[in-house]
């Protein structure tokens, strides 16, 4: 009697939750030290410093104004 071979083998796709999966090797900054001070980095940090100084001066003026320091000068 002739036999028929069924070659169909169903494929299953397994979906694993990220929390239960094998950890991946991520991009790590270990051993790299600080970021390279390229021109865009230098300029960005410079602008940030300037911005923070301006904000601090404004805040300082506001606090002194609230404390009445400038009232005597007016």
């Amino acid at each position: 009697m002739a036999t028929m071979h069924n070659t169909y083998e169903p494929q299953y796709l397994k979906v694993i939750h990220p929390l239960h999966d094998v950890p991946e090797q991520k991009c790590s900054g270990k051993g790299l030290g600080r970021i390279n001070m390229t021109r865009p980095v230098r300029v960005s940090l410079g602008v940030l410093r300037g911005y923070l100084i301006a904000m601090t001066l404004m805040l300082g003026y506001h606090v002194l104004n609230l404390a009445g320091v400038f009232h005597g000068l007016k």
Binding site: Y12, V15, I16
Partner: peptide, 18 residues
């Protein structure tokens, strides 16, 4: 990428879909 494996039999870990 360890997210999705193609397997031929259902496994106990993860959710198996068709």
């Amino acid at each position: 990428v360890a997210e999705i494996e193609v397997v031929t039999t259902p496994a106990s870990k993860g959710v198996v879909v068709r």
